[in-house]
């Protein structure tokens, strides 16, 4: 067994070796129809120590963590947990399916936003996401994609010009500090997620 499988095993005491590939996870997955690699195949790759392939799938970023797979698994394998571990591995190594690059950028921008404000500042997020995305893709159309949504959202009060910050940002900072350093290659334990 490779060390990578060990990472998954310690992640949330997920026993990937228990999986007998019945496919019930895939059967119940609401987004399996959009996935390139089926949930049961992700678990299979993890079982065989082939995380490199699993984390480069689009599926791990399409997973919505609804936990249906974990709930119905006849062998009590935490399939959603495997997905989570793969995302963390992918983020930590900055290795991601090309089509999902922007998703990873968005996630990072989102978390960074939360870390600094304690809550979401939508306009700032848009700025962060577009900037980072532009430097990654060097695509001008990307910069202006969805721009027309701005006024609509503004009119419905979904986008504030001046974002508010939470009062006690020290606590938020501490949460991030606790997680930091562990996110790189060691996924978090259950209670910390």
């Amino acid at each position: 067994m490779t060390t990578d499988t060990a990472i998954i095993d310690t992640a949330g005491e997920i026993r990937v070796q228990d999986c007998y590939q019945c496919g019930k996870c895939t059967a119940g997955c609401p987004v399996a129809g959009h996935m390139d690699v089926m949930p049961n195949q992700i678990v299979r790759l993890a079982q065989m120590g082939m995380e490199d392939r699993a984390m480069l799938s689009e599926s791990v970023w399409l997973c919505v963590s609804c936990q249906t797979c974990t709930t119905r698994c006849p062998k009590s394998v935490d399939c959603a947990g495997v997905m989570d571990a793969m995302r963390q591995l992918s983020a930590g190594r900055d290795a991601v399916a090309p089509a999902m690059r922007n998703t990873l950028i968005f996630m990072r921008a989102f978390l960074d936003n939360i870390r600094r404000n304690g809550r979401l500042n939508e306009l700032e997020l848009v700025g962060q996401f577009k900037t980072a995305g532009f430097f990654s893709s060097l695509s001008i159309p990307f910069l202006f994609k969805d721009a027309m949504l701005g006024p609509k959202m503004m009119s419905r009060r979904k986008l504030r010009l001046l974002g508010k910050k939470v009062r006690d940002r020290a606590i938020v900072k501490r949460i991030f500090e606790r997680c930091h350093g562990k996110t790189a290659d060691t996924p978090l334990k259950k209670d910390e997620q």
Binding site: Q21, G28, A32, M38, N40
Partner: peptide
């Protein structure tokens, strides 16, 4: 009936 065909790698 929502099932999986693991040989085809697709939900059914």
């Amino acid at each position: 009936v929502r099932g999986a065909d693991t040989l085809a790698g697709a939900p059914v």
